[in-house]
């Protein structure tokens, strides 16, 4: 599918209250265009829950459910199983953030993947708890400032690395795991389309920059989404029925190209930048080794 083939209908309507330049809003809007009307959507507690709908108003035009924070995968599975039993032919998708996926939602996610529930799980990754005001999550990268990894006199930024959730999901041997970035529309659309048309558990992890939390000019959301892939901080791949494939080979440009645009990395020392660069290099070696193996 190409951009021009996308439906004109906005199932995630204008008038939502996301911050200007929100990467998560782009994910929701485009994903709904690909999935279409015949979809039930689940939302845990996250930014999208709040900016996508504050009672009695809502931006989504499809059946919509929120239960709690840490149970997106199992709630989506509950919907999907009930639809099946009631003979309603519809897809179920969960839109969770990185905190609700990598941290508090991990147990329910792993359980649903193990059972191969017939759902699409989208993690829109903005690398921190943005809804509650930019606290670090397991998905926050090394060095990044957040309100719980402040730049102090003794310690500055996050001291540990980003958790690699897509690889954890691959270890579940589910039909489809893919990573995407809003900066690569055709790649993103292909993966949404595959996820839509397959059966069983489908996991899509989408890099979704957040101007408010990352401290950059909102106009740069897509640009940052591209730079992250170019420098290797984020890698685009998919694993379809066990076949792993890198869908965009990174240029492996220096991470400084990527981090210099963002206030959250501004404080980093040369040593910290080297550590981050080392992590990227090592990660890429691991991933490219996987394609050979």
């Amino acid at each position: 599918m190409k951009i021009k083939d996308l439906s004109l209908e906005e199932l995630f309507t204008s008038g939502h209250t996301a911050c200007p330049g929100c990467g998560g809003a782009i994910v929701a809007r485009i994903a709904m265009k690909v999935f279409g009307k015949n979809t039930c959507a689940y939302f845990p507690a996250n930014c999208l829950l709040v900016f996508g709908g504050t009672y009695p108003y809502n931006a989504f035009k499809v059946p919509y459910l929120h239960v709690l924070f840490e149970n997106s995968a199992v709630c989506a599975a509950g919907i999907s199983r009930a639809l099946k039993k009631l003979g309603r032919d519809a897809k179920t998708v969960a839109f969770a953030g990185d905190g609700g996926t990598a941290d508090i939602g991990m147990q329910s996610l792993s359980g649903a993947a193990e059972r191969n529930e017939d759902i699409i799980y989208i993690c829109y990754d903005n690398e921190a708890y943005m809804n509650t005001g930019i606290q670090r999550s397991g998905s926050t990268p090394f060095g990044a400032w957040t309100t719980t990894t402040p730049v102090g006199k003794k310690i500055a930024g996050k001291e540990v690395f980003k958790k690699d959730v897509p690889r954890i999901m691959m270890a579940h041997d589910v039909p489809y795991v893919a990573t995407a970035s809003i900066g690569y529309p055709n790649d993103f659309l292909n993966k949404l389309e595959k996820a839509r048309d397959m059966k069983g558990f489908r996991y899509l992890h989408v890099f979704a920059p957040c101007p408010t939390g990352w401290r950059y000019d909102p106009a740069k959301t897509v640009e940052i989404g591209k730079l992250a892939v170019e420098c290797g901080m984020w890698t685009l791949y998919e694993c379809e029925n066990g076949v792993f494939r890198i869908t965009k080979k990174p240029k492996l440009s220096p991470v400084t190209d990527y981090i210099k645009l963002q206030g959250r990395f501004r404080h980093m020392t040369e040593e910290q930048v080297d550590t981050l660069q080392g992590w990227v290099t090592e990660k890429w070696e691991k991933i490219s080794g996987e394609t050979k193996g």
């Binding site: 829950l49 504050t54 009672y55 035009k61 499809v62 459910l65 929120h66 239960v67 519809a90």
Partner: peptide
């Protein structure tokens, strides 16, 4: 109930 034939908002963020 959740049915694309008659979309409904259930459990949304409420002031």
């Amino acid at each position: 109930y959740l049915d694309p034939k008659r979309p409904m908002v259930l459990g949304s963020f409420t002031p």
